[in-house]
Amino acid sequence: MRLGMVIDLDRCIGCRSCAVACKSHNAQPPGTWWNRVFTPGASFHQAAVGKDGNLQMESLPVSCQMCDNPACQKVCPSGATYTDERGVVLIDYERCIGCRYCIAACPYGVRQYNWEDPKKAKARVGYEKGYDYGYPADFRDKDGKLVFTPNRPVGVVEKCTFCAQYTSRGEQPACVQGCPGKVRIFGDLDDPSSEVSKLIRKRPTVRLKEELGTSPKVFYLAPTKPIR
């Protein structure tokens, strides 16, 4: 099994619902975003770019690209970052030493650091006391590695887990469930009859920074909007 995702750029409207769903389901502390949506070329989101009246506007969601050849995993000195048997790149929050080498190595800027204790960060920015958002329990993989906990330890790196707490029991990741445009399709790239495999065969796809040899498992269906 090799879990991957297809993102249909023709359908994305840049609403950022996926980013919000991701953030709340995964209890991300203030200032941390595993999943981002921006308008390439624009200095702020949802602004068209172009010249002489030839304006265009695309939205590009970016989260962990779940590389088959992950730079972050190769540099991790303590083996805290690893790829599980489903091809998902994960971080063991109990083994990470916080050296941040992986943040330097990742070309996609998806790795996020706990610069302070998330509880302190939430209190400082004025989140209501006693209000906890996100999946409420710890989630450990089959070897007992802690890959999700609602309040991350200070000084460790975190990132998208393909919602390990949900997908391990056959459910969809929060971004897929939360997308109003059915932009995201999640499935097994090794299974030729899965929807992701079919779409990749049928439509032209783009992977980000493919030239770096990272072999991402997130495929973007190139926008095909007729312009003329």
């Binding site: 203030p30 200032g31 921006f38 390439p40 070329g41 010249k51 030839n54 970016v62 800027g109």
Partner: peptide, 23 residues
């Protein structure tokens, strides 16, 4: 590292923003 060129808009290098980790 994640910089993109936008064909048609004559933008050669646009860096995809990163969340700084603090609010």
């Amino acid at each position: 590292p994640l910089s993109l060129s936008i064909p048609g808009a004559e933008i050669e290098s646009w860096a995809y923003p990163v969340a700084i980790g603090q609010l």
